[in-house]
Design a protein around this nucleic acid. Structure first.
Lengths: 355, 355
DNA sequence: TTGTATGCGTTATCAT
DNA sequence: ATGATAACGCATACAA
């Protein structure tokens, strides 16, 4: 390690230049009231010097550093970067900074980052896990750091989570397609690491309330909407796949290949939905007439279609995570927050034209 | 400010528990050689306690903090988040952390973030400006912090920049379209804040070597390729617009509306290109037969088409920025780096079929 | 309201 | 190679 530029002025310098004691200075910087004449002198010297208190020294004294941590699986992913933008914006409003680490999609890196972070100067940590439930780091890894888990639910007991209402999203999207007269609705479930086949998805979703895959939550809503309309569940309308563009292509090909009639599709992400439309067009289907599509969290302006979508309010999710973390930092208790979702009707859904 | 959880153990605790002096401990943690028996004792205590040195205290003593800063105009933008991912990955490899702030596209916020950062514990800063050249913060705002500017060139004299070869990108894309028999090539230039009209673009690009808009750099390459093939420049083939999907739609409508024949288009971003294809299809053009399209920095799997593109190696740009910054931190001098670009031929370009 | 003095966890300078 | 101790910049208990 080599030496590094230090701040030009310390509080001692300011004390010397202004003739005010460092104690009074400290009080001034921490918002306590001091004598007006001193305040004026200080302000003058501050203008000249551009002095700012050192975060490091402040943190070492046991005060807060004003820095919060953020761990994301991938910063280069619209889902996470949107949350990150919300986090940074809210943090900035509170005069906080964000120490940000990517797990690079890897469990090993994630642990490494958590390890580095917990030795850092953080006031608290917002953690978007890449890990599967069984691999979640022990709570002790976080060393009493105030902790909020975002974009996932039911990961670490006793820790507040901020997530969206996946079941409602599944329900709203399915119900809307049904209202459009579409009763053969494909559901393309996405997993990083699929826990079951499409045949098993239904029983898996019923037996395992403890599992917290967003696809499963949404699938529950799908089932609920079907049931309300007495539409029989058909496992051939379900595909289990991954998260990328190619997953959408493959899933759609598989769906069509089953010779199952299908006039609606629900996809988990923009990339998958793009894969869908790409494959559907290749096979001669028209969108939205033949097959209407709804996806979760449309990334506007990044796709060729303007998709009907379930909006997840990811920016708000980021902001809420910071607010919750700050409650924790101030010693308050915090509960989970389940953010609402809403249906945004756009161009990829239309009333089924009966022939 | 309220009190915060502190690290469970300090170096004194470890000294007490291991019977080794804090000086020796410090040496051990800084990689100096110590007596084997001591090393063993230390390792044992470390296992039990999970102790890690405090970054804050370390930084206060004038050593490096292992934290580098990153300022981006928007983290929720594939261009910047890809660079950020590269930065975080390279930083992690070096055991460094990244303090990340978004300027939220605003000059005011950018200054605010720079101000906060410069009082922080950073070893150095990677700065992707949102500001226009005339509004770039004074170098003193950075307080002698080692500084690298990324994704822009020629912003602050004497500071190393890392950017891509925009002129080459413009040249390669144009030349390739010409090789496909397309000599009527539309160029859709994107600006946050357009400095001139499409009529003025050419003279603007010639007179103002000092201006550093990426669209202008690419436009120079466009002109160069046209010139090589003796294709006359037609300002009606140029549109000046913004960065979003709607910009692409509008620009394309404008281009077509001029009754200019056009059989190729070069777009600056994925979003703009998507706007193009959307509008072109609406007007009955086929892609790539009628009109071939090349864009810069294709965001795979986020578009309906698989676009032919100029690849910018943004991840590498992030990594290179960190490497350069670390050279600076170690007191070495650093020059600009202009990263190469390359043409990736995919599905949106095809040989013009002469009728 | 103000100033003095102490300590936070670490590194660097000594002397050993 | 090791250990005692003085800084580093700041916050705070305490005395004034």
């Amino acid at each position: 390690m080599n030496t590094v530029e230090k701040p030009l002025y310390s509080i001692k310098d300011i004390s010397r230049l202004s003739g005010v004691s460092i104690a009074t200075l400290s009080r001034y910087f921490n918002g306590q009231s001091i004598r007006k004449s001193n305040e004026d002198k200080i302000k003058e010297v501050l203008k000249e010097t551009g002095y700012r208190p050192s975060i490091a020294a402040r943190f070492m004294k046991g005060s807060s550093s004003g820095v919060i941590g953020l761990i994301v699986p991938e910063i280069n992913h619209p889902f996470f970067s949107m949350i990150a933008e919300g986090i940074m914006q809210e943090a900035r409003k509170n005069g906080q900074l964000v120490l940000c680490g990517s797990s690079e999609g890897s469990l090993e890196v994630e642990h490494q980052v958590i390890d580095r972070f917990s030795q850092s100067i953080l006031d608290g940590l917002i953690y978007i896990p890449v890990a599967k439930a069984e691999n979640i780091p022990a709570l002790t890894s976080f060393r009493n750091l105030p902790l909020v888990i975002t974009a996932r639910r039911n990961i670490i007991p006793g820790v507040p989570h901020v997530y969206h209402d996946g079941e409602k999203g599944g329900y709203l999207s399915t119900r809307y397609l049904i209202q459009l007269g579409r009763r053969r609705i494909g559901f393309i479930a996405s997993f990083w690491d699929p826990p079951c086949s499409n045949k098993e998805l239904r029983s898996f979703s019923e037996q395992s309330a403890s599992y917290t895959f967003s696809s499963i939550d949404r699938f529950r809503g799908y089932l609920k909407a079907l049931q309300e309309e007495n539409i029989p569940y058909d496992p051939d309308l379900v595909v289990v796949t991954g998260y990328g563009h190619q997953s959408g292509v493959d899933a759609t090909a598989s769906l069509i290949g089953r010779f199952t009639q299908c006039n609606g599709i629900i996809a988990m992400t923009q990339a998958v939905a793009n894969g869908c439309t790409s494959q559907l067009k290749r096979q001669g289907y028209t969108i939205p007439q033949d097959i209407s599509i709804i996806l979760f969290d449309a990334n506007e302006s990044k796709a060729d279609y303007t998709f009907t979508s379930i909006e997840l309010h990811l920016h708000e999710m980021g902001q809420e995570s910071v607010r919750k973390l700050n409650s924790l930092i101030q010693g308050e208790r915090a509960e989970d927050t389940c953010l609402d979702v809403e249906l945004c009707v756009r161009d990829t859904t239309v009333l089924l034209h009966k022939e």
